[in-house]
Structures are given as C-alpha cells and as structure tokens.
Simulated scan of single mutants.
Amino acid sequence: MPETLTFANLLDDAAIFSLEHQLHLGDVLGEHSWHADLQAHLFEFTGSRPLTCTGLHLLGSAAPGPRSWLWGWANPSGFPEPVTALSATLRDFGQQHGIAELASAEVPFDALPGSPTEPAQAVGILTDAAKAVSANWTSYNGPVGGGTRAAFLIEHPDFQLPPPEPARVMHVIQQALSGLWITDHRRALHAYAVRRRLGAAFSPDGTKLTITGPGLEAVIDFDQYGRVANINASLSAPGA
C-alpha cells in the first residue's frame, strides 16, 4: 500500500532544504527592501543587491484579526491568474491527498501544528508545505498592512543553491534541529540529503543515517523515539 501523505510529512520533507534556501537568499540580498506589483507580475529587491525576480507566485496571506491564513486562489481581491495559479495547484493537490490545510480556502491558525499565534509563524508553516509540493524552494514574506503578512514563492537564477560545502551542510542541519518544528527527524534529514544530492543510507535497523558527499561523512544516531541523539561528522575540503 502506498504511504498516506500528511501535512506533517510535507513539513518534514521541506524543513531543512527550505531553511538552507532562506539562508542563501539572505546571503544573496544582504540589506534590502522589497516591492511587489502583482498586477504587473513584478517582484523586486533594492538595497545592497538590487534584483528583479524572474518568477513570482502569491501563496496567500496570514491575518491577525481572524487569526487565519487565506490562500491566494481564494483571495477576493482578484489578483491575476498567473500570480495565483501555483496556489491553485496546491489546492488540487490537497484535495487529491486529503490534506485539508492545502485544500481549504481559509486555514485557522489553531489548525496548524503548534497553534501559532503570530501571522509570521503561520506563514512559515504554510510556505514550507507549499515548497514541498511545488519544488519551488525560495520564499519571501512581508507586511502588507494591518498586521497581515503576504507570502510569495520567488524565482531567480541567483537563488539556486551552490554545490554543498561540508561545513555549511552541517551548520544548516544543526540550525534546523535546534530551531525548527520537525516531527520526524529521520524523514527530515533523509529528505534534505536526497534533495541536496548527497548520499543517504540508513542502517538495517534504522537507528543510524549516514550522509555522505564531497568532503563530508556524517553518521547520525537516533534514539528510541526517532529523535537525533548524536551526530558524528568528518569534514574536509572537497577534493582534498
């Protein structure tokens, strides 16, 4: 029987790879401001690294008043279809797999993992799920008035990750494990390694995951609850 995909699965699948893309985006942009014109299909950054995105997708918005998220396809403001089309594909995916958080036009904060209280927290959760489905990995969100935050997936060649560098990979993994909401550590780490095109192999009993790549070998031990208990990593300069 095929696995039943859940919302939690999507978040675990996206967590670490999404984090690395957002860290990379920060490196690319530096100090910046943003501007969006959805009617013109325009999203641009100004500041230390001016940049105009080559792709723009409105995911939705999180508002503090109703304490809910509204998907872009359901927004009554009538944004252009090309800007909201990706959010509509997420709706269809949610309907196909029985994932209410994607299929419902509006999602209460209380229906999300951890019952977030702030729009920025809700935005992060829904955005990661969207990334896992769409394979568009760079996002941006910002205030649009009244405490509401709008979330976008954005594209540009400079947003592509560079080849994996051992110290960076380990930093991203450690930051994710210490700061992100991850339900299944095994799944999240394996998904990251696969998407980062690193080697990933579980021991026969599933208590260890070995991640390998140029200049990197990391053996990750899991405890009886499937949580990371220890990481033993060997790093060297790629090609050394």
Score class of each variant (00 low, 15 high):
Q22D: 07
N9F: 09
R149D: 03
D223Y: 04
G179Q: 08
T207Q: 11
E101R: 11
G213L: 07
H21M: 01
F222K: 07
F93R: 12
H21F: 00
G213Q: 03
S234Q: 12
T210Y: 09
T210G: 06
S77H: 11
V169E: 03
E118Y: 08
R149W: 02
V83A: 15
A129M: 10
Y192L: 01
E155V: 11
A229E: 10
G30L: 14
L177I: 03
H156E: 07
E20S: 11
I154C: 08
G179E: 08
F152K: 05
L38Y: 14
G215E: 03
Y225N: 13
Q160Y: 09
P2R: 14
I231M: 14
T52I: 14
H156M: 06
H21A: 01
S104Y: 07
S61G: 13
D128G: 15
A176F: 02
D12M: 07
A167E: 11
I220L: 08
D184M: 06
G60W: 01
C53R: 01
G98K: 06
V123H: 03
L112T: 04
I16R: 02
E3A: 14
L29V: 00
Q39K: 12
A200F: 01
Y140S: 13
A229Y: 02
G142P: 03
S134I: 09
G145Q: 10
D13L: 13
D37F: 04
L25N: 01
S48C: 04
R149V: 11
L235C: 15
A74V: 06
A103F: 05
L198C: 04
N9R: 09
T117N: 11
K208C: 10
I211A: 05
P82A: 08
K131R: 15
R187D: 02
V219Q: 07
F7T: 04
S115L: 07
D205G: 05
A188K: 00
S203V: 06
T127G: 14
W71F: 01
T138M: 04
T127W: 05
A150K: 00
F45R: 04
Q39D: 15
